[in-house]
Amino acid sequence: MEETSPHKGRLINDEVAETITRAEELAYELKISEVMTSNMHKISPDQTMQDVVDLFRQARISGAPVVLNNQLVGIISMEDLIRCLVTSDLAANISKYMTPSPLTVKAGDPVIEALKVFVNSQVGRLPVLDENEHLVGILTKGDITRGLLRALQHDYQAEEVRRYRASHLFEDIISDRTSLILRYTIRHRDFNHGGEASGNIKRALLRLGASPQIARRCGIAIYEAEMNLIIHTTNGGVLRVEIEPHRISIDAYDDGPGIKDIELAMKPGYSTASEEIRELGFGAGMGLVNIARCVDSMVLESSLDKGTRLRMKLFLDKAETVGEGYASKQGDAA
């Protein structure tokens, strides 16, 4: 298994995977060709060490590949230059002081391969070769850092773009009434996924341009409703969220067992939850109270053995609309 893995035998268990950061992931995703410097300064082995001094000073670099007939033959660095200066030998040919047949990396390899070479050797730069062994670039640790930062920035911008697009979702759609409906099936006693739907809804609202306060109020209300479906129903239930620019309507419904006394259920601290549920941190009798505090309107209907339907609504004023971009909000603020 290890040998046949397409990922160069890199086998990781979940525990290790936990500690992998995005930057480390990128080291596997990014190719060396994406981060290397390709328009580099080259020098020929029959030029003099004086030429090296001039090149380093002029180009403000501290090393360069040595190339003869399009073929990499060595690398010359500041250290080589110092050795030469110690013996005042600036007239010598570069071939005398360069490091011949240096370590190289392949342009198509992931950045991690270059990092391994940097870690295991003392070199400061690595010539990059293509599949035909031609020099196509040079790579320093600085190039890698910059490449990773660029990629992280790109990740960030991608999320911004997603958010921007979603926040303008409704703007170009003409209808008498446009809305976006999200549905989630909630399974009875599925505690491990409890809150997943609410998390996704909260994220969707933020992407649609909802204010953090609105997203938080919705998130808390829906989370409590979701936990109620998990804890109290016979067969689980459904969360349905309808998002309109000026209104968010949330329905949580199930097919049983129904609530015996709604007035009592609404009383702070009243709960029918079992000891087991309480140990999980729920069943404090605050769920419906919390919901009522977070939404603008709430209707709870239930009939024994038939099921329960909880309808919640949040009304968004003009400065807080979702999915309509910024234009309408700015217009309103002026």
Binding site: G194, Y223, G281, F282, G283, M286
Partner: peptide, 27 residues
């Protein structure tokens, strides 16, 4: 009690709890 947390906590707080289940993170 996670419902107590949801009812009372204001944004950007540290949550001290003895509960270890995933609901702590969801909350």
């Amino acid at each position: 009690l996670m419902s107590d947390v949801l009812a009372s906590i204001q944004p950007e707080a540290v949550l001290l709890t003895g509960l270890c289940n995933p609901q702590v993170v969801r909350t």
